[in-house]
Design a protein around this nucleic acid. Structure first.
Lengths: 235, 235
DNA sequence: CGCAATTTATAACAGGGTTATGAGATACTG
DNA sequence: CAGTATCTCATAACCCTGTTATAAATTGCG
């Protein structure tokens, strides 16, 4: 009933190789033949394990979401929920900055046209334990937002709506920055992302002073987590 | 020296047909052979006029930006700059909602990986008359932001930085909504976009009362410009 | 050990972008 | 007005990439 011949992990290696090809050569390097050669199998492996390139790319996109969620999970919680939100933002941005090709697929699949897990249930009614892949990342933002409301930093409001606002602002910044707007390097963080974070926090009920303080706390925590400068070191 | 044989507008018709195919059949319908058949020419036309499909797709992406700019230009200015910003937001969102496939290309080309006109000069220093395609749309937001600052609605600050924040929030919302998060139809506007607009305005210095008032003004102006309901009617 | 099920390599197929090639059409030149 | 350069375009082929038969190889189980 369950012969399961090879104990080889060809399926996983295909996804890993796909992400590698993606990072190195961009979307056009993600080809069945190159992929097979990279793993050392024939192109048939793509079809026995996934059914086609489309499904494999879907799996790559899903992997991107999972990695993002995993990174966000590492941020952890402090007694300053607003600083935690800023920490999530920096992490979200860092993930995309480090693997732009991967997240181009991850967001490109779901963005504009593709239909994925709708978040409508979450934003319109209560939680719904619909923790589908992509929503896990959103869940981290929701929980931090909830704590900010409980701490009196944000005006009492629907946590899902507030979190969706924060997610929109963050996702928009990250997307536009990755497009090359906002300039290269880290300047977008200081010039746009941090002011945007303060704007959002204040708009949601925080005071300017406390929001700015949380900004500094987040920056310090970031430096502690990563090496020293504001640079890399996530993986 | 300049024979210019055919006065035909094959080049323009190719772009128009490409957008039509895109809207009707999605990205995978955008093929050289289908395109040629649609226009009534051979595939060679793609190469004599563009050099290849890639350049044609670039032109399609550029056309999307131009249309977006044209729509934003129609919003006009009132004595309530914050309401004007909300009007720009509704228009930006409406454009993407009506032609998701087109703007998937427009943003997809520039988003995450592609390198286009960098906006860094605008946000880091002064204006720079670098009004490249994609930046025209941003220019509308900058001008409205400038008026909001002059009117005392927004705290005095760098208008480019403030506008970039607004653009991030707006672009993020539109992108995520188009992905299917935030639910279908118009509910995302009331549940997320309008609260997000108030959050941003308040965070930038406006009062809650005035921001909410501008929200209503923008909604009324929107109903006046479009038919009656919150639905279609842009093109 | 046989038998069923699965994986895999080989090779061919199909459909897309792209590229010679030459004919047709236009505007400048003499 | 004839000639010519130049551009446009249709045909047909080419190449690359995803995909699909087909059969061999491998594994688990009775």
């Amino acid at each position: 009933m369950s012969p399961k011949p090879r104990a080889n992990d060809v399926k996983e290696r295909l996804v890993e190789a796909a992400i590698r090809l993606l990072d190195e050569g961009g979307a056009e390097a993600l080809q069945a033949r190159k992929l097979a050669a990279e793993v050392g199998v024939s192109t048939m492996a793509v079809y026995t394990h996934f059914g086609g390139m489309a499904a494999l790319v879907d799996e790559v996109a899903r992997t991107g979401f999972l990695r993002l969620s995993a990174w966000l999970a590492e941020v952890g919680e402090t007694d300053d929920p607003v600083a935690d939100i800023f920490g999530l933002a920096r992490t979200y941005r860092q993930a995309v900055a480090e693997q732009p090709q991967l997240f181009a697929v991850t967001f490109g699949q779901t963005a504009l046209g593709g239909k994925r897990a709708t978040l409508s249930d979450l934003t319109t009614e209560e939680g719904r334990e619909a923790a589908q892949e992509g929503l896990e990342a959103f869940g981290h933002i929701v929980r931090a937002t909830e704590r900010a409301i409980e701490a009196g930093r944000f005006r009492a409001a629907d946590k899902y709506q507030a979190a969706a606002q924060l997610w929109s602002a963050l996702h928009g910044f990250v997307t536009l920055e990755a497009s090359g707007h906002f300039g290269a390097g880290e300047q977008g963080i200081d010039h746009i992302l941090i002011p945007l974070g303060i704007t959002m926090a204040v708009g949601l009920g925080d005071t300017v002073e406390r929001a700015e303080h949380s900004t500094e706390a987040a920056k310090a925590a970031w430096r502690a987590r990563t090496g020293n400068a504001g640079q890399g070191g996530n993986d």
